[in-house]
């Protein structure tokens, strides 16, 4: 025992201990060997509205009946029966005890992290010490950080001009979907498309009009793809890529036809085009054959080759990739 403590009378020492526990900015509860509340500090009184007299001597689970068969009850039992200490994480339990920041507002409980510690008295009787920490502020900070991280993440994956996914997102998504397709042996198609004679459009109407044109095309492509797993991304410049999971080539061709219609309906004038009076697209499509292992970049380059074939053949059309070039679909 410390010198100063030995100079103090037991009564004074006891008083000092109780005062310190009562002044502590956390909840302290002691449960006796019969599972009854033996001590309840002032913080608990302030945050629960339950006075010392109301709770002391009551069984913990009678006082808090919604905690019967809970993790907190079994942690208390572990301490009393086995001498084992436990931790109740806020992230797994939120707010086990009815504790509130102010008693005038009992709609939101304090977020709690609870430590349950087995202690013994001098005659080796087991008691249980509960320490209840208010982690509300830490939780709010963590949530704010997580929200920020998610925002940053979505910005990092978004094309600034058009608001649709960018190439980084496309590459990751394609990789995931190739893996998934291989696992479930399902088809996967990829379309690459390009705005016909976009340079002439820019030269004729100006860059701002060019930007606006790309935005309208992006929105139209996005609107035309109705399944949640379909992804359209801006690949770069006036080039877009579309990933179609669970879609065989025949299905991808139908989707491409539908895309042509949507862009035609936009009817964006393009006087400088040699193809039409309106904006048109050239497309190339390829598919993942079942049981073949192809990387995302090979798949994209196949679709790109088919796209170039479309350009070569006069634009405003779709070409299906084939191993032997210059062969039309």
């Amino acid at each position: 025992m410390d010198m100063r403590e030995s100079e103090m009378s037991i009564d004074d020492a006891y008083h000092l201990h109780v005062t310190s526990t009562n002044k502590a900015p956390l909840g302290t509860v002691v449960v006796n060997p019969e599972g009854k509340i033996w001590f309840w500090n002032r913080w608990m009184v302030a945050k629960s509205g339950l006075s010392w007299q109301e709770v002391v001597g009551k069984k913990f689970t009678d006082q808090f009946s919604d905690l019967s068969n809970s993790r907190l009850e079994s942690a208390i039992n572990d301490a009393l029966r086995h001498g084992l200490s436990s931790l109740l994480a806020q992230s797994l339990h939120r707010s086990p005890l009815p504790l509130f920041h102010t008693l005038s507002d009992t709609t939101t409980r304090i977020q709690q992290s609870i430590q349950v510690i087995a202690i013994e008295d001098r005659s080796h009787q087991r008691f249980c010490l509960l320490m209840i920490n208010d982690v509300s502020i830490a939780v709010r900070k963590e949530q704010a950080l997580r929200k920020q991280a998610e925002q940053l993440r979505s910005i990092a994956y978004m094309d600034a001009l058009t608001g649709i996914p960018n190439r980084r997102r496309l590459d990751e998504y394609l990789q995931d979907e190739i893996r998934r397709a291989a696992r479930s042996d399902s088809p996967l198609s990829v379309i690459m498309l390009d705005v016909d004679q976009f340079k002439q459009y820019n030269d004729n109407y100006g860059h701002q009009a060019g930007d606006f044109c790309l935005q309208r095309i992006s929105h139209a492509l996005k609107a035309a793809l109705q399944r949640p797993a379909d992804l359209v991304a801006r690949y770069g410049g006036e080039e877009f890529a579309i990933i179609l999971p669970d879609t065989p080539l025949a299905g991808a061709k139908l989707i491409a036809e539908n895309l042509f219609k949507h862009i035609m309906n936009l009817a964006i004038p393009h006087e400088a085009s040699s193809v039409s009076n309106y904006i048109t697209l050239s497309m190339g499509v390829t598919g993942l054959q079942s049981k073949t292992h192809i990387s995302g970049s090979i798949l994209l380059s196949q679709a790109d080759q088919a796209l170039h074939q479309s350009k070569h053949d006069g634009r405003n059309r779709l070409t299906v990739f084939s191993e032997t070039p210059h062969q039309k679909s």
Partner: peptide, 20 residues
């Protein structure tokens, strides 16, 4: 969990899982 690392909340959760 988007942050991709064990933050304080996740550490506490893992501690409890180990504890149980």
């Amino acid at each position: 969990i988007g942050i991709g690392d064990l933050g304080e909340m996740e550490q506490e959760a893992l501690s409890e899982i180990g504890n149980i």
